[in-house]
Computed example of a mutant assay.
Amino acid sequence: MDRTKLSLYCYSKCSTCRKAMAWLNSNQIEFQEKDIINFPPTSQLFYEWVFEQGLPLKKFINSTGDKYRELNMKERVKTMTEDEIIAMLASHGKLVKRPILTDGHFVLAGFKEEEWAQALGVL
């Protein structure tokens, strides 16, 4: 992961996002904060993460959120195509698992301190 070009897609009211930001700051890792609600990752980014990196699409779905329940996504994703799911994620930031840390290519979804430390070379 290129530490000079990091973007953090997050939601200010999300405690996990706040933990991730505090961890990045305490490890002196610079990042550009992006509001995932108003400016979710684009469909193109999701395609790159899923198809170029081979990450499972479900890794990006916030299945515990209110929007997920409100839109009845548990049932809908069973019949939706990958293209339809990606379009939903790109248009509804609250459907996206957060935070997302990316350099534009490599991506980490959800904050797991050990995973982030390994990816960012923090010992």
Rank of each mutant, 00 (worst) to 15 (best):
E114P: 06
I29V: 15
L45A: 08
S91C: 09
C10V: 01
K59Q: 15
R69A: 15
S63R: 15
K112P: 14
S63M: 09
F31S: 00
L24V: 07
T4K: 11
D2L: 01
D2T: 03
E70A: 09
Q118N: 14
S15F: 10
A109N: 02
S43I: 05
E70W: 07
Y11M: 09
L120C: 09
V50A: 09
C14L: 03
F111Y: 10
N38K: 15
N72F: 09
E113W: 02
L95S: 00
A22T: 14
P41S: 00
T42H: 01
L8G: 03
E82N: 13
C14W: 04
M1D: 06
H92K: 12
E82M: 03
V122K: 03
P40T: 03
I61Q: 01
Y47Q: 13
V96G: 05
V96E: 00
S63C: 02
K78V: 05
A119V: 00
S7V: 10
E33A: 09
M88G: 06
A22D: 13
S63A: 13
K74V: 11
N38S: 03
P99L: 09
S43T: 09
A90S: 15
S15M: 11
K78M: 10
G65W: 05
L6T: 05
L95R: 01
T64Y: 06
W23M: 06
M21A: 12
G54T: 02
W49S: 08
P56K: 05
V77Q: 14
K67M: 11
K13I: 07
K74P: 05
D103E: 06
K94E: 02
L8P: 10
A109F: 00
L24I: 01
S63Y: 11
V77H: 04
Q44I: 14
L24Y: 04
K74H: 14
K13P: 10
E84T: 09
A90I: 05
P40Y: 00
L95C: 03
E75W: 12
A90F: 00
K78F: 10
I61R: 06
T64H: 12
D83M: 10
P41G: 05
I85H: 04
F106L: 02
F51D: 12
A20M: 13
S15I: 12
L120P: 06
F31A: 03
